[in-house]
Design a protein around this nucleic acid. Structure first.
Lengths: 196, 196
DNA sequence: TGATCCATGTAAGCCGTTACATGATTGG
DNA sequence: CCAATCATGTAACGGCTTACATGGATCA
């Protein structure tokens, strides 16, 4: 019975449709611009097939709206079964949150990289953080006290902390750059065991 | 010439080998336990093939060590070409950092989910954060002032901020649970346009 | 005695991205 | 006039995970 865990993209579609009817195109936009981007960042190539499957399984319905001069829109709406399976899916033990950072790998190799590389990596990371913060702050039309405001607050808290750390310590990192430790590169190293 | 960007797993292998010779098995361990887990979390199924390809391309060398009673270990060592391409790869404009959270989706649907689900999602997320923080703090054998200490500091800053937010606001979130707004579920919604 | 660690690898399959195909309308 | 927006889809390809296959040694 339990359709055994929806794929992330299907979950995303149902979550967005839960709040109102949408076309595939609009779901894509909302997944990127709205506050769903922290969940998955889906592309058309995964959204359209997912919607087709959801429709086949009866979790959403489609209604086609003809338009002059434009391809007809397919407007999807969630069904009771869809709402039920979404709640079920969200009730399963959650997979852990994931944080993946190319930037931190660059930071880890600060000594071995040219100063310019470390500098621009820091600058780029900073730009990203500021942009995300602005985005978050700009988009919360939710009255305070709602779930939307809660998750926005969470995001702001994390991003602000990153930004603060970066601003406080980036100079120190840049100062390390371009000074590979003599011979430390690949000294036959006392074999990993010795590390313990 | 530019072997055009290494795959994440290849980059990981070279990064770890840069610090010393390792077997595939050890690389896996280090990618999970060491401070590389923020970068990618690779499995054997991706590490072994990656090492084979790196060896074929001359970025690493292999030396086989026979052992009695155990399968022989293949010890990989990075070459000059390997070091060069790693630096080159890390010098390319970095792809943006990624944060993916199932937990935040649950939080967004707090109203629509049973109290118990929200409660345990919060508890689970908290447990994860504490574990990661302990892990980070426990493992920094690096003297302060090193790149390793820098990235550990970054991680601690982010995780602490998340934890602080959670501790300060989780009760409010749980209090929202199980009270779906009347009819707000799928009211035909004023069509997304109206939101602008 | 049974689980866990060491140790290497392969094969199937999933899930998703990128690029392609098409094309009118609107805004700068 | 050019770019972006609206709008739907397919096909090829890529990368990673899961499960399988094997098996002695060590520890509880």
């Amino acid at each position: 019975m339990v359709a055994d865990a929806l794929s992330p993209v299907s979950t995303l579609c149902l979550a967005i449709l839960y709040r109102g009817d949408r076309t595939g195109y609009e779901i894509k936009k909302e997944s990127v611009e709205g506050d769903y981007s922290y969940f998955v960042d889906a592309s058309y190539g995964s959204i359209y097939p997912a919607l087709a499957r959801l429709a086949g399984d009866g979790y959403v319905t489609v209604r086609e709206e003809l338009q002059s001069g434009r391809p007809s829109r397919k407007i999807y709406a969630i069904t009771d079964a869809g709402r039920a399976i979404l709640v079920e899916a969200l009730s399963l033990p959650p997979s852990p949150d994931v944080f993946r950072s190319r930037f931190l790998l660059v930071a880890k190799f600060a000594l071995e990289l040219p100063v310019s590389v470390v500098e621009s990596a820091v600058a780029e990371r900073r730009r990203e953080l500021v942009a995300e913060l602005d985005h978050l702050r700009a988009m919360c039309p939710d009255e305070p006290g709602t779930a939307g405001a809660w998750i926005t607050g969470y995001g702001v808290a994390c991003l602000s902390a990153s930004l603060a750390y970066l601003d406080a310590h980036s100079e120190r990192l840049v100062a390390m750059a371009g000074r590979p430790v003599e011979g430390a590169a690949n000294r036959p190293v006392p074999v990993p065991d010795a590390a313990e």
